[in-house]
Design a protein around this nucleic acid. Structure first.
Lengths: 352, 352
DNA sequence: CGTCTCACTCAAAGCGCTTTGAATCAAGCT
DNA sequence: AGCTTGATTCAAAGCGCTTTGAGTGAGACG
């Protein structure tokens, strides 16, 4: 069933039928009703392709993921895509997903733009200085960055205040009296990880202390990374009594390392995690397992699509940057440092 | 730059240019080279939409995920989609993703078919008796099921031999001498979970033992589920000395429950997990953490796309069912039951 | 009564590609 | 020379929709 057939069946021209279905005003209300009824009855559904060709828009949003950064999204994939898909389909957009080899990404974007197969792109996991942003800007393809990058181009983005979040997490541990706090960060060529590192340093320096390279780690946020790194810390850095872990997955790994040694989180050792609120690794309940700074990946997905659609429909509007604050949630995994390592000095300043 | 412009620039007709680019034989080799060179030089890229309309194919594969089953995919999302996306793009197909509310799924499929916006569909997480299969069959939309369903329709599918895998896992524990083994299954309205349950029962019954409802659990495969259920077992079922956990995520939860009690997996209690080989929750190394039956979700994704493309290109070909066997991998999480609970009876039969 | 509006409807021209059927021309055959 | 044949190339007809510009008739107005 196509438009022409439907029109013939209704004894109307395709023009009128098209207008009736698409809500144009130049059509009598009675006619519109008749058309809509027939369309429903005959299960008429306009051809997506034809409409796309005629209008020049594809009603599709692309998500391009570099293979190397694939792990970075890893556990959060499902949750963020629920957000993306929901918001997109609500506005009539399809969600397209491509995992692309790093060295082919530029070509891929160029083809994407030239073939006009998508109306916009969500840029994921930006690096510290992400060249893709410049590229997309040049290509004139509407896009929104999930995260940020220190690049001299105007663009729209949504990010969590990673620096502040980790600063607060570290502060919280300092306030509890921990003197030596380690950082288990993500890969530091990623913008989010670089900012988290800064947040950690901010907090330490604010107390007049110095940071040490041996207690700052960077790596892919897997469970094994959390476990192995914590193991290493327990072996080599006995003065450390708390860690800030930049993901709930490695936090579980860190916890396992403690438990394997018979240690208890919150008593013998403290953990604060960055929690993206993954549905299969929930950290909730009366007293959540982990003390954490948290922010919903799913909600971020939804908002990003809103920003992108705004750019698509109005390409000349001003760029928008949205910064979300993470929420600090006190759970079971933190406590005062054990007496041996405890301190009596500067402590519990009346700080935010 | 469109085809017509390129043709004018080359002093050729659009027909010839189109044929040259698409590898048709009716074009002189020298002409083809000239055309290809110009296309590359001018960054010509055919319009996806126009091609789609002209050919009647969309070169897009849809993945429709019910919101309620979204969690079921959860942790494995990223990995399976890496497989899907890779295989698809290699064959020139785009990957489209939709999370759909359960009650709107039928309508969604009908629209998908009527609007001809995708060439095929991957059906995820089928239930025991999945009506969507019948629907897709009626709609004439090519599809492949990731998993299986007990439904009276011919269709193509790829599944892991869940029943056998869990049977082997259970057998392995029985061979070690465990007399009371609990099952932490997924949601049992899902086909994969129903089969796993059967595998568990197969193994127990084969030893002439009976299964008990109180030691068989069913639920969404989260970390918390693994933790809470194991907690419950430790409290209420002291005779149980081993568990079969149907996912690596809840297995971590189960492990945490043990460790929280100061118990050691592989010594005080045994765990066998079903491992989908998730990249952020790797279970590898010299001696993997968990004894597991495993199967790669990523590889499954790749193969499923192959099957689907076969159906798309040749809709009348015979349907194909692919059954993969999981691999049993012995790790640190299993051992003989502790002496108290140990047995001297039927043990270590020379069974597969 | 003639002219203007307004409300509605339509024919036709794209959108940018593929594909069919026909045209052209040189070479091969009788 | 006349007819095939095969190798190239092309003009034109779609694919199914949107959109422009024009047309129609009824009522309003001078």
């Amino acid at each position: 069933m196509n438009l022409k057939e439907l029109a013939e069946h209704l004894q109307l021209s395709p023009t009128t039928v098209s207008r009736a279905l698409n809500g144009y005003p130049e059509v009598r209300e009675e006619t519109r009703r008749r058309v809509c009824a027939a369309a429903a009855a005959l299960h008429y559904q306009p051809s997506h392709n034809a409409r796309q060709l005629a209008t020049g828009r594809s009603s599709t949003i692309a998500h391009v993921i570099q293979r190397s950064q694939h792990a970075a999204l890893g556990a959060g994939f499902a949750d963020s895509f629920e957000g993306f898909s929901d918001a997109s389909s609500q506005q009539g957009f399809d969600t397209q997903l491509s995992v692309v080899d790093d060295d082919q990404e530029e070509v891929f974007y160029r083809e994407l733009a030239a073939s006009r197969r998508v109306d916009g792109v969500v840029l994921h996991a930006p690096t510290v200085n992400d060249e893709r942003i410049k590229l997309l800007d040049e290509l004139g393809l509407p896009f929104v960055v999930h995260g940020r990058s220190d690049v001299h181009v105007e663009y729209s983005w949504l990010d969590v205040n990673n620096r502040r979040a980790i600063c607060r997490a570290t502060d919280f541990l300092l306030d509890l009296g921990h003197q030596h706090i380690a950082l288990l960060n993500g890969p530091e060529h990623m913008n989010f990880a670089a900012r988290r590192r800064l947040g950690y340093i901010d907090a330490i320096k604010a107390r007049g202390q110095g940071v040490e390279d041996r207690t700052m780690f960077s790596g892919s946020l897997t469970e094994a990374y959390g476990y192995n790194t914590t193991e290493k810390l327990l072996n080599n850095s006995p003065q450390v009594s708390a860690i800030v872990v930049c993901g709930i997955v490695p936090a579980f790994g860190a916890l396992r390392a403690l438990q394997t040694r018979g240690m208890t989180a919150g008593k013998d050792y403290s953990i604060v995690a960055f929690d993206d609120q993954l549905s299969h690794l929930q950290n909730s309940g009366d007293i959540p397992l982990f003390t954490s700074v948290r922010s919903s990946l799913r909600q971020a997905g939804t908002r990003i699509i809103e920003l992108l659609i705004e750019r698509i429909t109005n390409p000349n509007s001003a760029h928008k940057g949205v910064l979300w604050e993470a929420e600090l949630l006190v759970g079971q995994s933190t406590g005062r440092p054990p007496k041996a390592a405890s301190t009596n000095g500067i402590q519990a300043r009346d700080n935010d």
